[in-house]
Design a protein around this nucleic acid. Structure first.
Lengths: 344, 344
DNA sequence: TTTGGCACTCGCGTGTTCAGAGTGCCAAGG
DNA sequence: CCTTGGCACTCTGAACACGCGAGTGCCAAA
């Protein structure tokens, strides 16, 4: 028998589902008697006890103390999310509210800001939204502005409305004609192209200029490439940290590492980066690579202006969270943000 | 005698100072015996007790329970900060570290980001840094970029390195010549001027253009004015929220409202706004207007690229904080940020 | 396979006790 | 008049005991 994976019958699964639902609701270990009272399982507490013993044997649930009720394990939540739960669609009024709230945004910053607040409010958890990434987006326009004889400001505008600017210190004074030529050349070749392919398209560019101007052109190009390559410049916006107070009962210990993690953009980016491109990703408890987040779950999904995801957003909350509701909210918000981005 | 404000003699003040120092160190109510042991006051516990009774009478300290030690009140901290404490200067190595850390910044965003992290780390509290405000700064350059026939992007660059961009939907197609003329006109008149005075300087501008182009010019100007006026666009950066876990012992109750307050940029801006322009401002406990922050203190100060403050930064922590050290760190960081800004 | 019964376990809340820290007051001393 | 040692008093918090009740596992019967 050892090593054999027993198949759980339907009732056991129903019991697990009931346990998860009750525990998420009450935040307290749930016992056999309470279970049959609140869900009409059609069997007696004793039967449920047998099932629970089996579920515990398989590692789906766990009891904190001998005489306490059961709590789902990470593995239990995983099964619940994979097999037992349906994503709960938003109600029509909720959808209207989302739509309305996001429609008021005036620029990209505002879209992201509103999105993250909305998501935090809907899920009553910590929300994270990544700015539309540079990698997937395309060049809308490149602008060069002379600020001083040898100082040029480079402005990169993407199709997602994002703007990146950089100072360029040129080796010598830059003529306005050269600047204009360079501006035209850059836009002719790069506009509409994806950011990562731009460097390849501009490689030969210095050769098209006068010998004297080449150092300048090269310097500008170098800065541009740097800007394009700066993946780590990917920004993130956060909201709803106050919701962490409902994380657990043993406070400082659980909340501190989470707050620390949330301050590290790198960690958040990696977290979102692990999101599966197709569909929603749920990482439960210890499935999260980062130590500080082992008692939390992350629900994340990509969003984009078209058919394709340009960035990700998600929610971080206790493993004991309302997965169907959270997933529904995350999905709905992602969709609407995508639409908003496509419109603008 | 009633209503008379008694003068506290030097020893009572010394006792208060000792109480504040000990309480900040130990986080526990401090009694008469412990006091004389740790500070050589040259008197007996009984004498200290008498002084403590007087201090309590005057409202500077307070005992949580009959048989407990004393804790400073907000009023006590206030007196401590005003009369009993010296701002503690940073040590030379600390100053070097600050300098070194901030020197690595590549652009304004980075300066602010580094500053806020540094401040949080130095003080082990929550740090807040306001972006150099638009009001006080001057126009370095205004750029117009045609993105589509009737769509123009307006980019405003300030002397502090801040960049604001806005889409402008024009009433009709915009010729490149008009755009160039407008660009030149804008920069000639506005460059180097303070943002608030710019609208006045541009009032007559539409009259200088062809009748046909005036609607376009007006639209662009309107958007520009809007951008200039948008005080509330003032951004803020935050770090060190994880340090809140050391706020108090009764957790969720104290930390939640603080986290909520920290998420409201409006509240933070108002908080920093109350900073006295000259010198450092310390707001202790209930001196803070906002309800959620009555158990915290805010230490803030202005910083700027020249002699003049363009924005503010500060720290939020428990009323029981190391005021001299915190004030020293805040002052030092503000100075160095100012220098960095002046250099770039 | 399900179910009722039953004995058992154990956490948690309550109540009690006790030691220690701290106080206020008073009378004596400088 | 201020300071000081002594003393009685107060109160918290830790430690301990205790009993309730929720919950379990097992077993025999349906």
């Amino acid at each position: 028998m050892a090593g054999e994976v027993r198949q759980l019958d339907d009732r056991k699964l129903a019991v697990l589902r009931a346990i998860v639902q009750d525990y998420v609701g009450t935040e307290e270990p749930v016992g056999s008697k309470a279970l049959v009272e609140r869900h009409n399982l059609g069997v007696s507490p004793a039967t449920v006890r047998n099932d629970m013993a089996a579920l515990e044997e398989e590692g789906y649930i766990h009891q904190p103390h001998t005489s306490a009720g059961r709590i789902p394990t990470d593995k239990g939540y995983r099964l619940f999310v994979d097999k037992l739960a349906e994503i709960k669609p938003m109600s029509a009024p909720e959808r209207r509210a989302i739509r309305h709230f996001l429609d008021g945004a005036v620029d990209l910053d505002d879209v992201v800001a509103r999105t993250v607040r909305l998501l935090a409010q809907l899920t009553r958890q910590v929300a994270v939204v990544q700015y539309p990434s540079l990698t997937r987006s395309t060049v809308r326009h490149i602008e060069l502005v002379a600020l001083a004889p040898a100082k040029v400001m480079l402005v990169l505008i993407t199709n997602t409305g994002r703007v990146e600017q950089r100072m360029v210190d040129c080796p010598g004074p830059v003529g306005e004609t050269v600047l204009a030529d360079l501006r035209t050349a850059l836009n002719t070749r790069a506009a509409g192209r994806r950011l990562p392919e731009v460097p390849g398209l501009l490689e030969e560019l210095p050769a098209a200029f006068d010998q004297a101007d080449r150092p300048t052109v090269s310097t500008v190009l170098a800065t541009l490439f740097e800007t394009l390559a700066e993946q780590n410049e990917e920004r993130i916006m956060l909201a709803g940290t106050a919701n962490l107070t409902r994380l657990g009962h043993d406070f400082p210990l659980t909340i501190q590492p989470v707050l620390e993690a949330l301050e590290e953009q790198v960690i958040l980016l990696r977290l979102l980066g692990e999101t599966n491109d197709a569909g929603m990703t749920v990482r439960i408890g210890r499935e999260n690579a980062y130590e500080g987040l082992i008692s939390t779950s992350v629900v994340s999904v990509g969003y984009g202006s078209g058919d394709e995801s340009v960035a990700k957003l998600g929610v971080i909350g206790p493993t004991r969270m309302d997965y169907p509701g959270t997933m529904g909210a995350v999905r709905a918000v992602a969709r609407y943000v995508g639409q908003i981005l496509a419109e603008s």
